[in-house]
């Protein structure tokens, strides 16, 4: 018993105070309309080049993206703003239950930009990056020209800028790639389950429930592709060594996600409005992304209203190319940023 207690004490000490990263960077909270939202700023702040990271979900958090080789490479060159959106991550506060919708989120991001420029100077280079749900959020934000001028560039990674369309495209991928994998004899029973599900979905009338199942099957399907590159051990971060509170973050995030669903985010379809984006744009996609299929990347490449746009397709990645192909991913982002500094 005594030895067990000593061991537990030692383990808690190691877990709670070992990460030097926690002593670096800035933490700024934005208070807006009933919420206190943290923005953790890490990396090369003197570079005066900042990339706001819009996390996925909804229900995720900014700091869950801060792990692995790609972050090390990015933070050497630029400052990354890991922001927790309203009601998610370590954001706290009440009063937005009735008003939680896309307009409020866009307003939050406006205020974040003002706060960052106040803190670091009006002359900073500012880039917006959105992954998955962050791609929905960022694309919606970029629908306004007045908002675009705040930024040097827009980086969309595996972004869900058209949720009805991504559901249809995911079903197509399940059927095509699923059949192909079964023909090769790869994970036949798992693929059979996914293909059977896909065959049962009426793509002219996909319900919210089916949308959720498509998302789950999409994550599962990505894991079944054998040739994907996966994250190394360095991607894993101990829960106690990250300022995110795992339990509260997860519970509050789920609730916020449900509220946003009720308020219509599943209907967001911006493909026909992509021409409004005149800002230099970098599109990053995993070839085997069953969650937000590559077709959405091809759409964006074709339809965004500027000639200064580029799509990078990662051949060995699914929904999160930053994990498996992090070195190339970071290099592509940095190349884009360096080409679009003031």
């Amino acid at each position: 018993m005594r030895n067990s207690i000593y061991t537990l004490l030692a383990a808690l000490c190691i877990l709670s105070c070992g990460d030097v990263d926690l002593k670096q960077g800035d933490v700024l909270y934005l208070r807006h309309k009933g919420a206190d939202m943290p923005a953790h700023v890490y990396g090369n702040i003197p570079s005066k080049t900042f990339m706001i990271l819009l996390h996925g979900g909804p229900g995720g958090n900014g700091l869950e993206y801060r792990g692995g080789r790609y972050v090390e490479d990015l933070e050497k060159e630029i400052a990354v703003v890991y922001w927790d959106q309203r009601g998610q991550g370590n954001s706290r506060g009440n009063g937005h239950q009735e008003t939680l919708n896309m307009d409020l989120l866009l307003d939050d991001l406006d205020q974040l930009v003002v706060m960052l420029k106040h803190q670091y100077g009006d002359d900073i280079n500012l880039f917006l990056y959105g992954h998955s749900w962050g791609g929905t959020y960022g694309t919606k934000y970029m629908m306004s020209e007045a908002r675009q001028v705040q930024f040097n560039g827009w980086i969309e990674s595996n972004g869900a800028h058209d949720i009805p369309r991504l559901n249809i495209e995911a079903i197509k991928m399940f059927l095509a790639i699923g059949q192909d994998e079964m023909d090769k004899g790869n994970n036949v029973s798992d693929w059979q389950e996914i293909v059977d599900f896909a065959k049962g979905v009426d793509t002219t009338n996909i319900s919210e429930d089916e949308g959720g199942q498509i998302n789950q099957h999409g994550h599962k399907a990505g894991g079944l592709i054998g040739e994907l590159k996966t994250a190394g051990d360095d991607e894993f971060r101990m829960p106690f060594r990250n300022p995110s509170d795992m339990i509260t973050s997860s519970m509050a995030g789920n609730r916020t996600s449900n509220l946003l669903m009720q308020n219509g985010i599943e209907d967001i379809a911006l493909t026909d409005s992509l021409y409004k984006i005149k800002l230099p744009t970098l599109l990053l996609w995993g070839k085997y992304d069953f969650v937000v299929p590559p077709q959405l990347g091809y759409d964006a490449e074709a339809l965004i209203g500027t000639t200064d746009k580029e799509l990078v397709m990662y051949e060995f990645s699914d929904h999160s190319p930053m994990n498996g192909e992090g070195e190339a991913y970071a290099a592509d982002i940095l190349r884009f940023i360096k080409n679009h500094l003031k």
Partner: peptide
């Protein structure tokens, strides 16, 4: 009673103001 880490700001009509002892 919690107090936010770091600095907390709010934006009023484009003007950024520090909120001291901000928390929940």
């Amino acid at each position: 009673r919690s107090f936010n880490a770091g600095k907390t700001f709010k934006v009023d009509n484009g003007e950024v103001k520090r909120v001291r002892f901000a928390g929940q």
